[in-house]
Computed example of a mutant assay.
Amino acid sequence: MMMVMSFVEMRRIPSDWLQERLETVKPLKEEALEMYEVAKDKLTGEHYLHYAYLHKQIAAVGPESNGEETFHHLMPLTSDDVLGLVFGEQSYEYPENWSQSFLRNGPDGDYVWFDPSYTDQEAESEEMGVNLQEQLLRFKQSSDRSEEAVRKLLEELDRTLGKDDNGS
């Protein structure tokens, strides 16, 4: 007996496997450049939110290129998510509602997992950098270079970096 593996357990999924195993449960939205639907894996019963969009390249390169490429994203859904989407009670627009890992088509026609949380971390790091820069600028503009002023600056910097008194 062959064991069927969930896409969630795989790192890289060939696109032909997705085409064979996924079926549309409910179309949610279809426009000229984008489409949303709830899809189901026929072998595992798992549901996915499928988002596809047509990217039109302004400067198409090569004689075979028609200047268009379709991209696909598949986000795993819970039973509650499926019900919310099917009954129109849950938002699904990309990227606002895509905060968990999802599959997206990548090189060589395979699908790979993408974790969108890095953008949140990037924004937090950028904000922290601005705060550090402001603190250092205030210290630089101040004429007080006493041991107490330096200690206070270092404590402030540690708080901004989220360090405790032990340096961790």
Rank of each mutant, 00 (worst) to 15 (best):
Q19V: 12
D165Q: 09
A52P: 05
P63F: 10
R104T: 15
E64H: 14
N131M: 03
H50V: 06
F114Q: 05
W17R: 13
D115G: 01
S168C: 11
G45H: 04
Y48V: 02
R145I: 06
E89M: 07
W98T: 02
T24V: 14
S99F: 05
H72G: 09
L157V: 12
Y118H: 05
M128V: 08
S125E: 08
E122H: 15
L132D: 05
T119F: 07
G88S: 00
A39C: 15
L157C: 05
L103A: 11
A39N: 10
R159N: 13
A59W: 06
E134R: 06
F87L: 07
S101Y: 07
E134T: 06
L85C: 01
G167C: 12
D144A: 03
T24E: 11
K40V: 02
T70Q: 12
H50A: 12
G67Q: 10
K42M: 13
G45C: 05
E148F: 07
F139G: 13
Q133V: 00
E68R: 10
E124C: 08
S65G: 13
A123S: 08
M1F: 14
M35C: 06
S91M: 05
Q141M: 14
V38R: 01
E37H: 03
L22K: 03
R11A: 00
K56H: 09
P95D: 01
E127L: 03
P116Q: 04
M3P: 15
V112S: 00
F87T: 02
V25T: 11
P95T: 00
E155Y: 04
Q121P: 01
K56P: 00
A52N: 11
E30K: 11
R12L: 00
G106E: 13
L83V: 11
P116C: 04
P95Q: 00
Y94D: 01
Y48K: 01
H47V: 05
A60T: 07
L74F: 15
V150T: 07
R145P: 07
A52I: 12
M2A: 12
Y48H: 03
S146W: 04
G167P: 12
V82K: 02
E93R: 01
E126V: 04
M3N: 11
M35P: 00
E126C: 08
K152D: 03
E69G: 09
L161D: 14
V38Y: 05
G67E: 11
T24P: 07
G167D: 09
K29G: 02
N166G: 13
L43F: 15
K42H: 12
T119R: 08
G84P: 03
A52Q: 14
L77D: 03
N105H: 07
A32F: 09
H47S: 10
S117I: 04
L43R: 14
E68F: 14
L85V: 05
